[in-house]
Write a protein that binds this DNA or RNA. Structure first.
Lengths: 352, 352
DNA sequence: GTGAAAGCGCTAACAT
DNA sequence: ATGTTAGCGCTTTCAC
């Protein structure tokens, strides 16, 4: 018996790996060489004889042998996994209802795949944000991409101070130790508001929770644009509303309850814009006739909504690539500057 | 020097792990014990002295030490990672535009998290579906959950024949070696169609690509319901259409081009239903007045659409749990039966 | 060109 | 109650 010890129980308990997985030693035995040679052959080392190499490669592929990445990682102290963390609201524990997130996940998956990285997804309670570092702390992932800054600036700073390689999708803030990638929210807010003003609207409502940094910046852009045209922002027209899908109805109801006159809405997400438009309709208001609406994100459905939604596009593909590039820089020890991606106004039917 | 060898270059290359990560030996040294004791303390073994245990635990937590899961997995031959694979259409390489997928990912994330599993996401070319097994083959994951059966029955059977633990979200088919979890599509199709008939509709169009197994089953349900009321399915009313967001417009256009009279539509996804309704509007047709519409999936937006969408709900939470439960059974070597989850008719405005 | 041996960070027999 | 030791599956020096 070449094997020495058999200490652990071999029973296939829940979560245990499969039983009889082929390993390098098996290939070595079958090829009549040592595991060292198999390893070299598999890694295309020039040291191994042409003939031996092909023999081993053929054997491995006909047996569908794949090298065990866990063991390889351990030996190489390598890792090609990135964790993508999505905070969820612990109060509602609701599913991500915004298609924007899916789009972001898709972009990240693409960007990571292109670079040969795997993507580990985890959801963490937004109130326990330092749990976000777990995949890094345990060595599962080389770094963290956090989608959704919420209002947890301080916790994120703490993570960065611990030297957890982390990149956050969100707004760039003062006193920020971590790297963010986001779209230029101020300019997004301005583009939307400028456009509405150019369409002759003056009573422009703002829908969004300005406690969220990104929304606060969009609001700043909104105010800038108003100021540029000598319009004072009317607090009556700012409705604080969550990103939940009920937001649109709540916001329109609130506006009506306040008795505020308005001829336009700038909503901080397309979903919010769409549900707002549906609610406006119930109040007998037409879009864009009575009320022009601009959304944010340019989710795919916006084109197919009725009327097609004017919106601010965030460049999702670029976002995925920028997030990944920044994270990999951090991992290599290169400080990564925060980045603001350009936003773009997409004019469609809701402001025709 | 206690260390023996220093063979590899320590340069932080791309993808390399961070430099100076704390490990068990460090804690052991600082606590003045052996690594075995640290290991035991960390695993709450009753063998270690109360006082020692607390000392070690305190030390570890104050130093923010986390055990290296890769090494632990290797030693334990354990693994608590499940791969979720989402095929994409290689032709369009398009992002998943359907919120249904996000919802599914959310459910899976929840179900896996509850059971203490991590979720690795990968996207594979739908034409290269055996690449789906890679995370399993390389030992990264203990099994695969594939969301989106498409038309790759044979490739899936091959994977199952290789004993890859795999569970597929989709329809149950004949000659199937792999386990599926899906909703009861036949009954879903019947519920939708029965409901439309009960509302007095007789010329019910069917929108969906019946090359997809799930859609084929829904079509069967549709035909059953029609037959039950002595209505012959009119081929003119079946429009084959993809799940892309342009589908609704294309399908309605096609129907109009055919000159087919219709007073209802059963669409195989909510997205399809919504874009169809918008297109109907462009043709001056009212919903539900001229045309009643039933969708499928009950995505969150359906409630907030205008008019709110009547649809067939697939139980997403249950789906996530069922998929995970089936996979874990397979991993333990227990054959897992395919499962059909009940569907439910949700009546809203589009069939009022 | 190939093999023997050491060790990545951890756990569990087996001592003591 | 704790330490010693072997080894999970792999890669790489160092010998031959």
């Amino acid at each position: 018996m070449p094997k020495t010890q058999q200490p652990e129980k071999p029973a296939p308990v829940p979560g245990s790996a499969a039983q009889k997985r082929l390993q390098m030693a098996d290939i070595a035995r079958l090829a009549g060489v040592s595991t060292a040679t198999v390893s070299r052959a598999l890694n295309r080392s020039p040291l191994v004889n042409e003939e031996t190499r092909t023999r081993i490669l053929d054997l491995a592929s006909s047996l569908k042998y794949s090298i065990n990445i866990g063991a390889q990682n351990l030996r190489l102290k390598h890792n090609r996994t990135v964790a993508v963390v999505i905070p969820y609201d612990s109060a509602t524990r609701q599913h991500l209802s915004d298609p924007f997130f899916l789009s972001m996940l898709g972009s990240l998956a693409d960007a990571l795949t292109e670079r040969g990285f795997d993507m580990l997804i985890s959801r963490v309670d937004a109130e326990e944000l330092d749990a976000a570092a777990a995949p890094y702390d345990t060595g599962r992932a080389i770094g963290i991409i956090l989608v959704g800054q919420w209002r947890h600036h301080d916790q994120l700073n703490q993570l960065a101070a611990r030297h957890v390689p982390i990149v956050v999708w969100g707004a760039q803030l003062a006193q920020q130790l971590y790297t963010t990638v986001g779209s230029d929210n101020v300019s997004g807010g301005m583009l939307a508001t400028d456009h509405l003003i150019a369409r002759g609207r003056r009573r422009i409502a703002f829908f969004g929770d300005i406690n969220l940094p990104e929304v606060a910046q969009r609001y700043r852009g909104y105010c800038n644009a108003l100021a540029k045209h000598g319009i004072a922002p009317d607090p009556q027209l700012r409705v604080s509303v969550s990103f939940l899908p009920t937001g649109g109805a709540e916001a329109v109801d609130e506006l009506v309850r306040r008795g505020a006159a308005f001829d336009a809405i700038f909503a901080c997400s397309d979903l919010l814009a769409m549900t707002s438009i549906n609610t406006l309709r119930e109040y007998g208001k037409s879009v864009p006739g009575d009320v022009a609406v601009v959304g944010y994100d340019d989710i795919e459905l916006s084109t197919y909504f009725h009327p097609p939604l004017t919106t601010i596009r965030q460049p999702m593909r670029a976002a995925g690539h920028a997030l990944v590039a920044a994270l990999l820089a951090l991992v290599e020890g290169v400080p990564a500057a925060s980045e603001q991606l350009p936003t773009e106004l997409i004019v469609r039917g809701t402001t025709a």
